[in-house]
Simulated assay, not measured.
Amino acid sequence: MNRLAAFLRELKSPGNFLAALFLALLVAGALLAPWLAPHSPVAHSNERLISPGADHLLGTDQFGRDIFSRLITGARVDLLVSFGAAALAAVLGVVIGLIGGTTKGFPRMLAMRGIEVILAFPPIVFALLVVTLFGPGSLTLILTMGILFAPQFARVVYGEVLTISNLEYVQASRVMGSSSLRVLFLVILPGALPPVLVQLSMTVATSMLLSSGLSYLGLGVVPPTPSWGGMIAEGQAIMMTSPGLLFFSSAAVVATVLCFSVLADALEKSLDPRRSRKRGAVRQAPKATVA
């Protein structure tokens, strides 16, 4: 409850509040996209490159498709991919981090060396390799980014487990006769979850950016299903005659990634008291005097 209250206090900041409001409206719009979209997002028409108006709020593209309908439907697809990839990465990373932090010898070496192998690949190169081998699609994107971002969660959990395992209340639980699994899942894991939630928010933003880039290259969401990256590629082709499609789709990606980053920072401030104390100490430290 204290952490929830701290997070709500962080949302009182105008920037954090606007970011949370934008994301809430975006998620609501994505969930209600089939009912909110005034036109079919994939149906072609003769009303091509129409300027924004009452019938088409954001205008139409070069195929006569309603940009607003495609934008909110694309948000539904991109958010599903981003949240799915982040959730898969969190599950894999937590399991690997727990194995590495609670075992010794070969299991720990296998877990930690495995994530180092994945970290050795540049993200875009790894994603391009997997998508090229297995073909584009939403499921491929989720699996690829889930594996790609799992090491980040594993390293966070690994460090937290090593730190928490040596604390007095954990040692007391072991002395009182609690089993190793009980100590792990009921004592150690809850203490390691706050930084995982922060990492989850950051990973959603990174997944959104990477999936949009792959869709822009034609290796992400398969047309005619709308995606923001695909809309950016389509808008680039007509940017000189009708810049609306490129502007709206690019603005959607930038605003979403920025808001998730702001939300991650607010989560970190409220869920990690050590960082809050460190920031307070820095603010209260006297300035050095130059002789």
Rank of each mutant, 00 (worst) to 15 (best):
I118W: 09
P195V: 02
L92H: 04
M176I: 07
V156A: 05
E160L: 02
V175H: 01
L184E: 05
L271S: 05
N166D: 14
D55A: 12
M1G: 13
L186Q: 15
F153Y: 15
L162A: 04
V282C: 07
A291K: 12
V125E: 01
P273D: 08
K104I: 09
T132Q: 08
N2K: 14
V130M: 09
G280C: 12
L267D: 00
V254L: 14
G159D: 00
G74A: 08
G101S: 03
V198I: 11
G235N: 10
N46T: 14
H44K: 11
G84Q: 03
P286Y: 04
L219D: 00
A150N: 11
V222P: 09
A251M: 14
L4G: 02
S242Q: 15
M112H: 08
I115D: 10
P224C: 03
A6W: 06
E116A: 11
L25M: 15
I124V: 15
Y216V: 02
A87C: 11
G177T: 02
Q171K: 15
F68Y: 10
T203Q: 13
I118H: 06
M239W: 14
I67R: 02
L119A: 06
S270Y: 06
G74P: 00
Y169T: 06
G64A: 09
L193M: 10
S249C: 00
L217C: 02
L210M: 15
F83W: 12
S250L: 13
G137S: 02
A6G: 08
R174C: 03
L167M: 12
T140G: 15
L167I: 10
V130C: 01
A205Y: 09
S40G: 05
L88F: 12
S51W: 14
R274L: 14
V282H: 13
L58H: 04
Y169H: 06
F134V: 01
R279F: 08
L167E: 10
S211D: 07
R174A: 10
L148E: 05
Q236M: 12
V262T: 12
V77T: 13
V77D: 07
L80M: 11
R274N: 13
P107Q: 09
G59A: 03
F185Y: 11
A87S: 15
P34D: 02
P273K: 13
R275G: 13
S138I: 13
I99M: 08
A264Q: 07
G177V: 04
Q199N: 14
Y169S: 03
S40E: 01
D66H: 00
F248D: 07
A150F: 13
F247H: 06
Q62P: 06
N166A: 08
L92K: 05
L8Y: 03
L11I: 08
L271W: 05
L186T: 15
I118Y: 02
M239P: 07
M231E: 01
L181Q: 12
S165E: 08
A237H: 12
P38W: 04
R274F: 13
Y158D: 10
V183A: 03
I147C: 10
L141G: 02
E47I: 11
P52N: 05
V204I: 13
D61F: 09
K12I: 07
G280A: 15
I72Q: 01
K12Y: 07
S40L: 04
P52M: 02
D265G: 06
F7A: 03
G105Y: 10
L133E: 07
M176P: 01
S173C: 07
